[in-house]
Design a protein around this nucleic acid. Structure first.
Lengths: 196, 196, 196, 196
DNA sequence: AAGTAATCGAGACGGTACGTCAAGTCTTCCT
DNA sequence: AGGAAGACTTGACGTACCGTCTCGATTACTT
């Protein structure tokens, strides 16, 4: 069985996709987003910068935002895994600090903000973003609380999702809506208030 | 009779701006945003729908988002003035409920989400949105807490802005980022947690 | 009636077509055809050379060959009106000589050969070419013979169209098919043979 | 069945060209020219229709028109060898009739017209067409007249090439330029006029 | 019998031009 | 002077083919 499917998979794909072109596109996208912003990000610009044909981009990515999704996944993502120190407060303070830095200062955060912005205009982007990124990130955000719950540090009836909303909501609000900075004092205070 | 012809006379109005054209543009913008989304919102489309020349739009609005800002201000906004019942909890519960409904179900909320999305791509839009809308809204959001503080219902060292971030942050987070619904239970619970 | 149609004609055409752009396109087309041949004649190239936007070309001409038809009509055409000396042989010798030079050496002849070539590939071009040019040219080709017939120089049962085919057919054959030169001896001899 | 697989064995033929692929390309070219016209004739289309790789086409034919030249030579051509009845008038009438039918109604004639059209745009095609086809055809066209000259049926000073131009010129003119039909009466009359 | 070499199908690649859409500027005519 | 109409330049869109290339498979000629 494996033999057959193995051969069939090769039947129409003799030399496969150029990883070189893929990387060039993703890097060019990152660079142009940083240099010119989302409005100045065009397929033609990416192609020119990457030294790649437009058709190669259209062959592998259905839209500009899908390139960003790819660049986002490739670039960053797992920066946002919370630590496991055994101390809930400590874990949350570090995790929220990382989240705040990711959202407000990192390159990957710039890509995320662009995607979140585009999600307001295009339901498909919203769905992709939620399916591919936010779901997993919610799992990671829950981890310290879940572990504390398992350790008996939190009352058994604790609604972890509600706590996560309370913790990450204000940070996203500042990063995406008001544009205010998100300093350590802010994130630490959030942890303090939420844990009583 | 003078009234009617008086309004009609404004159509070919010279020397001062045609209010008729202004309204037609704003309504056409609202309609097209609802029908086709932000991506399908073009100056040409608005002009055609409004029965107005493109030049008329460019004469009075510097950009597409400024039209949206205008439509937004015209349309709604003041839905979000909190009540003053004398009971802080009651005021906040009602206010947050209104905010949630505004963000997730109202037409004006759709415009706001589009503007917030565009603000991720264009710093100028971000600035305009914060200056013209968010600053005033923050004032309104602070009102119940400020009044409670003045009444001595809250400790004098209370950081009202921090409380506001904790209250409205998670609501914006759901509305703009995760796309989850924001039911009454959620907003009520936020109030309960924030007031101890 | 004239008043109404006159006003209606202006209703949707307040500043009308730019004659400057039209001329620039036609000249650029001529130049590029001469420099690069039909294969190297692109809409983008014409636009660039003419200093005109592609959209302006698409607004006024449905296809590349229509530009050529325009350039052709503008450029030349009436070079091919036969003289009227009162002597049939003389008139025909001069006319065929002009025709041969038009087809083999003139710029307009280059355009005509390109159009005739394209007519082999595209029935619509063939129809346009025949309707707009060849019909009128046939009339001009018939003139000397018709006048001779009217003067009684030719038998009344003469089939003028057949004589025209015999006179211009071999010239087109050489110009378009074999590519041989068409010297004066050849055209004079054709006249001699056809007139007995 | 073995016969079939025997032919199929050529499919993966190494060391010599696959006749199967060659035929498939030529037939696909004919079909597509008939179905879609010259404008719709693409290498990709031919390859797809023939079930052949593009590379196989580029390996064996330098250009699209060379495929047409091949298809042309393969298909027809020798339809245009004049008869030798011993009667010049009879030979010419039959030959011109065949020529007229070839040009206006046969499949090979369609290919020829396409090539003649392309020859107007591309000097290389013109050269190839004249070298490979028109030269030989001129020889065939001369045959009846040369034989009549040898038989003493024509004056010794007869310019055979000029007679050929007078005979075939008008037919090509109608077929390629005016698009008029070329009936038997027309070709017979040409013979009558040229032989005095 | 195993290797070598030519050719096949498939299809990805960098390009060029296509024809379309919308942007923002402009000019003209009308009121 | 404002407004409707719409032509203008510009630039990006997404598509179609171009001609080149590499891949893995197939089979005829070596040796």
């Amino acid at each position: 069985m494996e033999g057959d499917t193995g051969r069939a998979a090769h039947r129409g794909n003799r030399h496969r996709r150029s990883e070189e072109a893929r990387q060039a596109v993703l890097h060019a996208t990152d660079d142009l987003l940083a240099e010119r912003g989302f409005a100045g990000l065009t397929i033609e610009g990416i192609a020119a910068r990457a030294g790649v044909a437009k058709q190669t981009i259209y062959r592998w990515w259905p839209s500009k935002t899908e390139i960003l999704m790819d660049a986002f996944t490739d670039d960053a993502v797992q920066h946002l895994t919370p630590p496991d120190s055994g101390d809930l407060g400590e874990d949350l303070r570090i995790h929220l600090r990382n989240l705040a830095e990711f959202l407000t200062t990192s390159d990957a955060g710039t890509v995320f903000r662009a995607l979140a912005g585009q999600a307001q205009h295009d339901p498909e982007v919203a769905t992709r973003l939620r399916t591919d990124h936010l779901g997993k990130q919610r799992e990671r955000d829950r981890l310290p609380l879940q572990r504390a719950l398992d350790r008996g540090e939190l009352p058994p009836e604790t609604d972890i999702d509600f706590l996560v909303d309370q913790l990450v909501g204000p940070i996203h609000y500042r990063a995406l809506v008001t544009g205010e900075p998100v300093p350590k004092e802010f994130t630490d205070r959030l942890v303090a208030h939420v844990l009583r």
